[in-house]
Amino acid sequence: MQHPDRFDPLDPATQPVVPIPGYPNTQRRNPARAPFRRVLTRTELTGPLDLSQKLRPGDDNLAMLAPGRAAQGQLIHVGGRVLDEDGRPVAGAIVELWQANAGGRYFHPIDQRDAPLDPNFIGNGRTRSDAQGRYGFFTIKPGAYPVPDSGRWWRPPHIHISVLGPGSLMRLVTQMYFPGDPLNGLDRILNSVPDLAARARCIAASVLPTEIAGDWLGYTHDLVLRGRHATPPL
């Protein structure tokens, strides 16, 4: 039985408001003009069904570069489910993750901050959600870092996540935060989302140590993509 696709407009209160003070690129790079409304046709309702040939998954353990080369920091597992707005699991979504090391520095040529690089931590990973929509990464807890030229704005520990679901309109790029961090309340990116509940949903939940095995402190974080009646079977 075929239901019509539904991509309801995003509730603006649940999405960031720009510009963000102290982040000049949010001024320079966001249109002054409101976006135009358009009819949704095939081209918007479709998207690459399975990107795993193009964007190859496999790097889901960021904490161990090679045997015997463990990254510095608190070992953590971050996992959860990729869901649509009906709570249906989105299978086969590509989930990309990148983050700073335990000292708050990225392994990236343009991060020239005076904090240590960890030779055993790159901090980039990619995986694919399973049939239940589950994804997971073994990594370390990232450090906080100051935003250059912004006064006293520090980014709280956070993990960048990009999700490519089976439809262009399902695309999501987000950041995951850690529960209880005092910097969360001061972060201008997290707080650019007006709706408090939407903000709270960007903060992962702790998993009790009794619930996971091994050396990993657990966090669970579900990712909700746009779309109702819209998740095609793989």
Binding site: T14, T26, D86, H160, S162, V173, T174, R201
Partner: peptide, 30 residues
């Protein structure tokens, strides 16, 4: 078709920031 759960609200977007990994790109991706 039934809805397995109450409707959920899409996760808030955020910027990719300045440090989107160069290693995510492979020649031919474009």
């Amino acid at each position: 078709m039934s809805r397995p759960n109450a409707p959920l609200v899409p996760t808030a977007w955020a910027t990719i920031g300045p440090f989107f990994p160069n290693t995510f790109f492979r020649e031919g991706d474009n």
